[in-house]
Computed example of a mutant assay.
Amino acid sequence: MDIASVMGITLALLGILGGMLMEGGSIAQITQPTAAIIVLCGTGGAVLLQFPIGIFMAAIRQVAKVFTVETSNAQMTLSQIVEFANKARKSGVVSLDEDLPRIAEPFMKQALMLAVDGIDPSAIRQIMHLELENGAEIEEKIASVFEAAGGYSPTVGILGAVLGLIQVMQHLDNINEVGKGIAVAFVATIYGVGLANLVYLPIAGKLKIKHREEQVVKEMVLEGIVSILEGMNPRMLELKLNTYLLEARAEEQRAEDRRIK
């Protein structure tokens, strides 16, 4: 589990709800199903109008990434590439053909397959760079889904509040009911602003970090496979690829610093 994500959402909820309770409020005051339906469905509809259904569903599936950590995979991938380099040095690149079935990662499998088939290193770089660029474009759209939701949600919340006030105006003869109705009407605004700033926008930011980390690992894989094909010493290769892991950590730190600012 990604402890930062779990602690973040927990701290935010505890702080907001705790502050409300300390001021004499109650959770029941903000548990309004009607307001939740207006904000969630309104925001979801606006996002669906902006993005294709495939991108929308891909974004929903990637929410799990926000709460999981896969940092160990990068080190395992590096070790696997070094293992391939040692084997290729002893038995030739063609000997790696028997390792293809046990490679689960599609990007690495495709790059290694091209290398085993004797494709020129420059051609491999060109082919796999195209795949990297296409993947990065899709991942950018996925993060944009949550950014768009973060933009629409507060506005839809205001729309829900206005709808609630319209209903309140129909009961001006009962001042007690008017007061309660106004309070209920503004719950939609709370949902809209809360979801945008505590859920949608943080998810978008975290996915961008995760996607960049994955891209750096793929760049490392490509450089590793090409270097094997070019006959680089396995020990030199390991030192070279370690710089990609340092870059991934540095990129994560830079993204975290930007989010704090």
Rank of each mutant, 00 (worst) to 15 (best):
M1S: 10
M1P: 10
S5A: 13
V6W: 08
L11G: 10
L13G: 11
L17R: 02
L17G: 02
S26G: 14
A28H: 13
A28T: 09
A35K: 11
A36E: 06
T43N: 03
T43E: 11
G45E: 01
A46C: 11
A46L: 15
V47G: 00
L49S: 15
Q50P: 13
P52E: 01
I53T: 12
I53R: 12
I53H: 09
F56Q: 05
M57L: 08
A58P: 02
A58Y: 03
R61Q: 01
Q62A: 00
K65M: 08
T68A: 01
T68K: 00
V69W: 10
V69P: 13
V69A: 14
T71G: 03
N73V: 15
Q75Y: 12
S79F: 12
A85Q: 07
N86G: 15
A88G: 04
A88S: 13
R89S: 09
R89W: 13
K90H: 12
S91M: 15
G92M: 04
V93L: 14
V93E: 05
V93S: 03
V93D: 10
S95H: 13
D97T: 08
E98T: 14
E98P: 12
R102V: 12
P106G: 08
P106I: 02
F107V: 11
M108Q: 06
M108L: 15
A111W: 00
I119Q: 11
I124T: 01
Q126T: 08
I127K: 15
L130K: 13
L132Y: 04
E137W: 06
I138K: 12
E139K: 08
E140L: 09
I142K: 00
A143S: 10
F146K: 00
F146T: 01
E147R: 08
G151Q: 03
G151S: 04
Y152I: 08
S153V: 02
T155A: 07
G160P: 02
G160Q: 05
A161M: 11
A161I: 15
G164S: 05
I166K: 00
Q167P: 02
V168N: 01
V168I: 07
L172Y: 04
N174V: 13
N174Y: 07
I175F: 05
I175A: 10
N176F: 05
E177N: 07
E177D: 14
E177F: 14
G179V: 02
K180W: 06
K180V: 05
V184W: 10
F186W: 12
F186P: 09
V187H: 04
A188F: 09
A188C: 09
T189V: 12
T189M: 06
T189R: 02
I190S: 06
G192N: 05
V193Y: 04
G194K: 02
L198Q: 15
V199P: 01
I203H: 00
A204L: 02
K206C: 04
L207G: 00
K210Y: 05
K210N: 08
E214A: 13
E219A: 05
E219Y: 03
E219F: 04
L222H: 07
E223H: 10
E223F: 05
I228F: 15
E230L: 15
M232F: 12
R235I: 14
R235Q: 12
R235F: 12
L237D: 13
L237N: 11
E238M: 09
L241I: 03
Y244F: 10
L245E: 11
L245T: 13
L246N: 07
A248V: 02
R249F: 10
E252L: 07
E252T: 12
Q253Y: 14
R254A: 12
A255N: 03
E256C: 14
D257P: 09
R258S: 06
R259P: 07
